[in-house]
Design a protein around this nucleic acid. Structure first.
Lengths: 211, 211, 211, 211
DNA sequence: GATGAATGAGGTTTCATTCAT
DNA sequence: CATGAATGAAACCTCATTCAT
């Protein structure tokens, strides 16, 4: 019996049956909710299992450890966000909408897709210190986000007033993400609409030299 | 004789002797370093005490628990940053430096003061879920930052091109903070200088209508 | 989702499997022995767990803390004593035994059922200061004892020479309990038999006006 | 330097100066109050020192350890009670008061002297398991109490109806102590006066064959 | 002498993970 | 396979006692 066979027999099973897949999804789903609600450290495996309607024992036949679900949640979160954005981009890029409208839509879209995962994302940020795997995943997600931003900007390349496109993508991506975080998270005294308007202004001016 | 009185008499030492003050400072210092280096959850009280060169018992005579030092570190961090920024503002606001230079300097200054505490800050963000006290402290720090930004912007009020000053402060503050975070934290493929240049461009265009 | 719900979901295991029930019983049993032998404060949870042949972790999945087992031991102790007494009462009350014999038997019976828990009981008495829950449980146990004494006395009501039955029950119950304590605990220079004889004399005279 | 000299120089000083004596008394006094109020285990040395208005350091120059004050409190308590009783006995034994009155007075007297130390006494009872010294002291106190009861009974020896005086002393002493405890401690549904009346009845009947 | 800061052994409690049923 | 009981390392925290100032 070689190693590979053993692994197949022993380790976290790759769900082949429908029920199995459903169970795994249920766990990831439960974990995602709990992590978002209470953070990684305040959520324990028993709670995750209970919320997913399985035993702790089962939990460990789908995931090697707690970190493992965390990574899965992260992947899914990432995918959801990217799909969301892609859809929005597709919808917007073909149309004749003026740039300002495009940017506003993008911001709204981000707010919606981002919202359920923000805590989660912050915590991740902190966890990259402790965990190389998480760091890498974050980096690659970030990179994907940045690349997508570059692409998006290239759609209107001839109108762009920025010289260093790659650096611009970093700046734009960070600014949008963090302002969105802020809007989603803390009420604060200034209304979301006012903040969104200014953010759109800033980006239009910066990117296209006009509001 | 109620519980509160007793607790006051019993708990957390109020430093009377010089030695005592030094010890407390050493603990906060050690905690700050460890939190920044490994994050809150991967740091334990024993480690903090050891790093400060004291016993766990001493730790607990100065702080009720880990969260308590954490709050102290946070306070100090906040003060350090604000002082740093105030100093920079004072230095820049009287001079004749052109706006672009002012903005560049501010960015550099933030990078320097921010650097040692970033992880810390991310983690905090995640912890606000679990801890009302931390949430409040964060809010108030954020508010101070935003107010300071408003003030700063008012220095050049007549040249400003923005309508909604308060919302603008939020946008500017968030953008700068997050881009600075990014620069400090992840190397990434794009150099810090390029990012800084674009950030400064964006802000100048947005705020003053010119690079 | 409030804290209470979470706690219910999370804390102290409700035994579902047989094994589980056995474990819980083993812990209570071990705790009872250790408390009786060394007192509450000199017994720690690790010792209890070890004596029960389980890990500390198990201990804490059945009980929230040391006080919690203590309360359980107390409940069981109470039940054991009451059953013991009830049995004795049943056995004696139907018979034709003369009153003196009845009283002697009751004293013996109490000595036997009381013996293993006396220290325990003393300590409890001291703990009522610190712990409202213990105070209440003690009160209710005491009340049950007193009521039982009243009942017992009423069996021979027409022969009783006492006016205030309720007060008499207090006096009788306390006297018997404390003399029994004394006999069980301290050897002393006077033999148990002599003391028992005098106690029986006192009660007969008081209750029925005759030895 | 021989051992004795060292001891004089080093160990818990025997107070020779007035101030020193006062301090020691203050500590014992503070300890007595705290022990009675919260029990031995819930009182810590810092609290005792603070309540006595001295530093923890000073505490340890008057007493070798916490148990040591405890023993002192116990001694004083014992002395206070005995003096109280002696005074009462003296006051009563010469007079012509009838026996019932004598007994009632004794009960009242005990209630008063006993009251402040009851918890304390219960706890002691529990501690005898753990501490040989405490056990011995308790035994000797108990013996003194019993002897005093014997003496008291002998005052009216010719009227006494009991055969075994020593055993009777045990029974009487225990009964009175415990009923007094009960009266002092738990309100309960039956009033103190009713209980006292029944107790006096019981004792008169038992000892003298009459109410 | 007096002070109160410092110590650290010892106790309590949690929870990711394993394993008997 | 699923279950949930059991594990135990590792964290947290307290307090009697010592000791530098």
């Amino acid at each position: 019996m070689n190693e590979t066979e053993e692994q197949l027999a022993d380790k976290t099973r790759k769900p082949r049956q429908d029920r199995s897949i459903k169970t795994k999804e249920a766990i990831v789903q439960a974990a995602a909710e709990l992590f978002s609600e209470k953070g990684y450290h305040r959520t324990n495996t028993k709670q995750i299992a209970a919320a997913a309607g399985v035993s702790t024992g089962s939990f460990y036949s789908y995931f090697t450890d707690k970190r493992d679900v965390f990574l899965d949640v992260l992947k899914i979160h990432s995918k959801v966000m990217q799909d969301h954005i892609d859809a929005k981009v597709a919808q917007l890029s073909d149309g004749q909408s003026d740039k300002r409208t495009v940017i506003s839509h993008m911001i709204d879209s981000l707010i919606q897709s981002h919202a359920p995962y923000i805590t989660f994302h912050r915590e991740l940020s902190a966890m990259r210190l402790a965990d190389e795997g998480i760091k890498e995943m974050l980096e690659s997600q970030y990179d994907a986000g940045r690349r997508k931003t570059v692409e998006l900007l290239k759609l209107s390349e001839q109108e762009l007033r920025v010289g260093d496109l790659e650096a611009a993508a970093v700046v734009v991506f960070e600014s949008v993400s963090s302002v969105v975080d802020r809007i989603v998270f803390f009420g604060g005294s200034v209304s979301a609409d006012r903040i969104k308007a200014e953010l759109a202004d800033m980006l239009c001016l910066y990117l296209f030299g006009e509001k």
